[in-house]
């Protein structure tokens, strides 16, 4: 009988493989808060903007994921943009317009939009 630890290691390797095949190693990873609190603050619309950009508008090299609540109640909805080798950028109070701007300015042009950053 295989040991449970060996079984889990195999499962982990498979899981990592699946995540990578979904594009985890893209230059930019974008996480949108999708807990009850975030959704109440309007994050579903924000997610839609990012999804649309990836699926319809040909935005490439981006790994898009939902995430739970990190705990910044008064600054929700929150979005993180993470790039290898750079400090992670966390945006707060993101709405549809801001999401569109984050895509244009940050994701496409590499500009960190300082005034929305949670510090």
């Amino acid at each position: 009988m295989a040991k449970a630890l060996d079984v889990i290691k195999k499962k982990r390797a498979e899981a990592v493989g699946k995540i990578i095949s979904k594009g985890y190693l893209s230059t930019k990873r974008v996480y949108v808060g999708m807990a009850t609190c975030e959704i109440a603050a309007g994050s579903e619309e924000v997610m839609e903007v990012f999804r649309d950009a990836v699926k319809q508008k040909g935005l490439t090299d981006v790994y898009l994921s939902q995430k739970g609540c990190a705990g910044r109640c008064n600054l929700e909805p929150t979005v993180e943009v993470i790039e290898q080798g750079k400090n992670p950028v966390r945006y707060g109070q993101v709405d549809k317009q801001k999401a569109a701007e984050i895509i244009e300015r940050h994701i496409k042009n590499g500009e960190v939009i300082e005034e929305w950053v949670i510090d």
Binding site: K3, I8, V16
Partner: peptide, 29 residues
């Protein structure tokens, strides 16, 4: 709350990738 806000809660792969269920495996082994 170690994973809250950094993984996709709907994805068991995300959890497994961060050593999820390894504690269970350790206990069983």
């Amino acid at each position: 709350l170690r994973n809250c806000g950094i993984i996709d809660p709907d994805s068991i792969d995300d959890y497994l990738a961060l050593r999820g269920y390894e504690a269970l495996a350790k206990v069983l082994t």
